[in-house]
């Protein structure tokens, strides 16, 4: 696999960085690839713009920052609008349709809408797992990490709430599948 760049954007407190770490761990420790994860954030712990990035490759990653993301996961309107034009040709954007209103995007970039927040709230009865629902959708849609690797990384990341988070991941995978089917129908 060539260098694949992933950017996750949202607000502090949404689990953006945690999500990126889970993707990185799945890629390296469980899928046997190389990965670098970085993040940038403001001085506020909650509510400020938050960005996390992961680069996955079969070879060691030199330059550690994302230049033209192949995949973007957006959990806030600001993140979507701020980063949507950076995407590479053929890139994909996955948004939480409960939190983000997709706007215009450049040609060749595919947007997938996933109702992660409502699913977390209504199906899983816990809004804290919204990011893990998104991880499920990300795994299903982007295919840059294996579902097995992601499940292991999620179990490691939430030892006390493993079952809930794995269920959230599975729900997200399902939502990802549905979003892809919808997008095929559109085409």
């Amino acid at each position: 696999m060539a260098r694949t760049e992933i950017r996750l954007g949202g607000l502090g407190g949404q689990g953006i960085i945690k999500s990126a770490v889970i993707i990185g761990e799945a890629a390296t420790i469980h899928d046997g690839k190389e990965a670098v994860q970085t993040a940038s954030y403001g001085p506020e712990s909650r509510g400020s713009a938050c960005k996390a990035e992961v680069i996955i490759s079969d070879n060691p990653v030199d330059y550690p920052l994302v230049l033209t993301p192949h995949v973007m996961v957006a959990l806030s309107n600001d993140a979507f609008h701020k980063y949507k034009d950076d995407l590479s040709e053929g890139g994909i954007v996955i948004i939480d349709s409960d939190l983000v209103k997709a706007g215009k995007i450049k040609a060749g970039v595919q947007v997938y809408e996933v109702p992660a927040a409502t699913t977390a709230h209504q199906v899983l009865k816990n809004p804290l797992v919204t990011n893990v629902v998104m991880l499920g959708a990300f795994t299903a849609i982007s295919k840059v990490v294996s579902p097995e690797g992601m499940r292991k990384a999620i179990a490691n990341a939430f030892p006390k709430y493993k079952d809930l988070n794995l269920r959230a991941f599975d729900e997200g995978m399902q939502l990802g599948q549905e979003a892809m089917e919808k997008s095929t129908q559109k085409k």
Partner: peptide
């Protein structure tokens, strides 16, 4: 800070 905060294997 780049090396301190980034994650790798």
């Amino acid at each position: 800070e780049i090396i301190g905060h980034m994650r790798e294997r």
